[in-house]
């Protein structure tokens, strides 16, 4: 067995793998934020709350309706996405003519309401959600015991992230979307319903958050506060990656997960701040973010 700087390889590889799993959540969430920001120019502070909502919807589907994990993986994002569409139509749409900061404040208020409601009805001690039977157990990779479910999380997030990237960058629909981002008036003049596209985009971005929530439900106990601290980290991820590109948001998510895992090996106490330190450095050297376009 080789050793690296006195660190046993199983610890190093193990923590990197755990970092990748965390990175999977960062990637899906920051992707959703980037998609929404691209078209709406709104920083969706409610993203964390909607991620939490995804987990709760999955839990409710199971406990109140008897719908299991796999259907929930599709249904819960749809429900959360529909909820997002309602929010966009009734509230966010009224703010587009104002300073973008109002969007941030509004979604912050929405996050408080959503979290407060769930905390009120379910407490904060967390509800258990079982790992689906087919994914229980795990494999011994030699350096660590890898639970099957966590491996699935990585796979699922990669599929969703790159699927989204393909749709936006390589399809006709995505081309409209990108065009509308650049110049909504012109695209509207071509007969494309831009407001509808904005609404659906918000719904889709939010559905991604809901999807991440369902993925997280069996790992973390389903808890009203689960999104609250996550969202701040994801904000930092977004600042580091820059808002310019979809791929930037995805890659930064995974990379920072890995960096966090690596920090755990060498300086565990620092793992919680490392992302913010990187953010400060990036701001100093390249203020528009790693993948961002100069503003």
């Amino acid at each position: 067995m080789f050793e690296l700087l006195g660190i046993p390889p199983q610890v190093l590889l193990g923590q990197l793998l755990l970092g990748l799993i965390n990175g999977s959540f960062y990637a899906v969430l920051s992707l959703g934020l980037a998609v929404i920001f691209g078209l709406l120019n709104i920083i969706n502070f409610a993203h964390g709350a909607l991620y939490m909502m995804g987990a709760f919807v999955a839990w409710m589907l199971l406990n109140y309706v008897g719908i299991g994990y796999w259907p929930a993986l599709i249904l819960a994002p749809l429900i959360v996405g529909a909820f997002g569409i309602v929010l966009e139509r009734t509230m966010l749409a009224r703010l587009y003519h104002l300073d973008h900061l109002y969007g941030l404040l509004l979604t912050f208020g929405l996050a408080l309401i959503i979290q407060g409601l769930f905390r009120n009805y379910y407490g904060i001690s967390g509800l258990p959600y079982r790992i689906p039977d087919i994914l229980s157990g795990g494999h011994n990779l030699g350096f660590m015991f890898m639970p099957n479910y966590r491996a699935w999380v990585v796979v699922a997030s990669v599929i969703v992230c790159f699927g989204t990237w393909f749709m936006i960058e390589k399809t006709r629909l995505g081309a409209y979307l990108r065009a509308a981002t650049e110049n909504p008036v012109l695209v509207g003049a071509f007969g494309i319903n831009v407001p509808l596209m904005i609404t659906l985009t918000y719904g889709f971005g939010v559905a991604l958050a809901g999807f991440a929530g369902v993925l997280a439900a069996p790992i973390y106990s389903v808890n009203p506060n689960m999104g609250a601290d996550m969202i701040i980290v994801v904000f930092a991820v977004v600042v580091i990656g820059g808002m310019g590109s979809i791929m930037g948001a995805i890659l930064t998510g995974y990379i920072l997960g890995l960096v966090e895992g690596l920090t755990r090996v060498f300086y565990p106490e620092g793992s919680a701040v490392v992302i913010f330190v990187i953010m400060a450095i990036v701001l100093l050297i390249k203020p528009e973010g790693l993948f961002g376009r100069a503003a």
Partner: peptide, 25 residues
């Protein structure tokens, strides 16, 4: 909520016993 990285450290330590000095949830 997530103890996985701590547990991994505990596992790598070669200890016989992992003492959980915490409570409740």
């Amino acid at each position: 909520q997530d103890f996985s990285s701590f547990l991994l450290q505990a596992q790598g330590s070669g200890a016989d016993v992992i003492g959980l000095a915490n409570a409740g949830g």
